[in-house]
Design a binder for these strands. Sequence first.
DNA 1: CGAGTGATGCACCTGCTTAA
DNA 2: TTAAGCAGGTGCATCACTCG
Length: 300
Amino acid sequence: MNNLSGLDLNLLLTLDALLTEQNVTRAAARLNLSQPSVSVQLAKLRESLGDPLLLPGPRGMRPTARADALREPLRQALRALDHAIASPQPFDPAQASLTWRIAASDYSEYSVLLPALDGLRQAAPHCRLALLEIPSTRLSAAMEHDKLDLAIFTRTGAPPELRSRFLFDENYRLVCRRDHPDLQRSPDLAQFCQLEHVIVSPDGGGFVGSTDEALAKLGLRRNVVLSVPHFSFVSAVLSRTRLVAMLPERLVRDDPALRVLDAPIEIAGFEKMMLWPERVHRDPAHQWLREFIARAVPAE
DNA sequence: CGAGTGATGCACCTGCTTAA
DNA sequence: TTAAGCAGGTGCATCACTCG
């Protein structure tokens, strides 16, 4: 590229216009510049390329042999550059071969990605998904460093600098095994507090959740005896023990081994969102993936 | 000779970069 | 953050040249 290092590449557009029009005034009009401006640019081109390029002729200018030789290669190069920086082509999922990296909890995998997975495989058979577990505090950094394309997360706690799209509202329900001896119907508040609860604490080791905060406002406490980091283990625990749990409804409503009951206390649910960085906001492949997931996830 | 065109100079403006 | 410097643009004027 040494031949280009001393050349203002914008001048190549001027040269192309001059070779097309063979007239400085018309070239200036084509470039939306004034005639003196293009005249100065022509002088710079002559200096840079060491050739007069265009010589005064009848009704305008005549190109030199050097300029004539430049005409077609220059036009092709400018066309190639124009193509390279043009708007990206529409994404073709049937032909595309790439890997999307998505951060999701096991709940998000089950409620958001599982409904989309089969359709995704059919629509984009050569694409792969990598699901990662990344704490919310590291989402932005991972996306910024091109290690993550998308996150399935709650609105609460979502990094504000990320783009987002609402997916659905989720509610907590009281869940126990189908033949739980003490829970043939929804318990009252006192019984609810006496039951042995399992809690999901993604950060690990926590024994207090939104249910406990709601109870505390009434001056009550429940009996949390087990804390686990993942939702998927909870259903196994519930189906084999007398433990109960407050779980997102989508996680348990299709499980025949479990009974889903109304809790005797109102617990705030959460909004499930997709989050992504500005870096991929306008990328056709990522736009397609986000749209596909949003359409595949049931609103209810 | 007049019209059209390119080249050049001048004053001025604007936007960007850089140093304080 | 701000001021200074610089590059590049504009409009205008003028000159030289070519052509019908």
